[in-house]
């Protein structure tokens, strides 16, 4: 019998711990498919964050390092500077990347660190049980914004793609979503391009993936995707924010 759909080899056989309806599984798969297609598993080192994806080190079949909270880009920098011929990616959530690790994110981008960052933005802290994230929307109810995020108290959400695209070291920044097949396909293309950007030595690449967290949003998986479309996408418009990959290198 012909196998028409199988697990990418860049994923291990370990069952994931993610909640039903969580989009991490999709994003893991996309990253793994890209690693397979580029044939780079043997020379790839992945950096797992602190947050829901903390155990990504068990799921990706390439060599993996688990970084302190927010420090994945710094750890990736250490690896890449030591092994410039290898492929290095980080996989980070919004609290990790855009709150505690903002400095590491911004500075690895502005250094043009030749790494790839997969940024999963689901507007909430998942692993700790649903607290406000730096990307939580105004008015959004979380455990720590029980009356909805009041911007007068908690300030405004951070738009990472917009921010890092202003930095000269960023070669490629795109925001994608995984709410429907069409967008999943686009997301894969973006992730592939990000890895290719690194392989071509062009500098910092980041793909922000707008994602759903049905458990902490308190919604059924399909309703969560609907909520994502209606609420997150207007605040976090999809698209390419920076693309220096076509520019001729000086």
């Amino acid at each position: 019998m012909a196998v028409v759909f199988k697990k990418p080899s860049a994923l291990t056989d370990m069952p994931t711990h993610y909640c039903p309806g969580c989009t991490h599984g999709i994003i893991h798969r996309l990253v793994a498919e890209v690693i397979d297609e580029l044939g780079i598993e043997g020379k790839t080192v992945g950096i797992a964050p602190v947050g829901c994806a903390v155990m990504a080190y068990n799921y990706f079949a390439c060599d993996m390092i688990e970084a302190p909270h927010g420090r994945a880009p710094a750890v990736a920098t250490g690896v890449k500077r030591s092994l410039p011929g290898n492929v290095v990616f980080t996989y980070q959530g919004d609290g990790d990347l855009a709150a505690i690790g903002t400095a590491e994110t911004v500075h690895s981008a502005t250094r043009g660190e030749n790494i790839t960052v997969i940024f999963v933005n689901n507007a909430i802290y998942g692993m700790t049980g649903g607290q406000m994230a730096p990307t939580t929307l105004p008015g959004q109810v979380t455990q720590t914004t029980p009356y909805g995020r009041d911007v007068k108290v908690a300030g405004y959400p951070v738009r990472i793609c917009e921010m890092v695209s202003t930095l000269d070291g960023t070669a490629y920044a795109e925001r994608v979503a995984v709410d429907c097949v069409k967008n999943v396909n686009k997301a894969k293309k973006a992730i592939k391009k990000a890895f290719q950007t690194q392989l071509e030595g062009k500098g910092f690449s980041i793909v922000e993936v707008v994602s759903a967290c049905p458990t902490n949003w308190g919604l059924a998986p399909n309703d969560a995707l609907e909520w994502l479309r209606n609420n997150m996408l207007p605040y976090y418009p999809l698209g390419v924010y920076k693309d220096k990959t076509e520019e001729v290198k000086e």
Binding site: I65, P68, V75, G78, V79, R81, S82, A103, E104
Partner: peptide, 18 residues
């Protein structure tokens, strides 16, 4: 590095790389 924290984590990365 951008901070002492980043510097030590870069060391962590390099040490991980062997």
């Amino acid at each position: 590095a951008e901070s002492e924290i980043a510097a030590i984590n870069m060391v962590l990365g390099a040490a991980s790389a062997g």
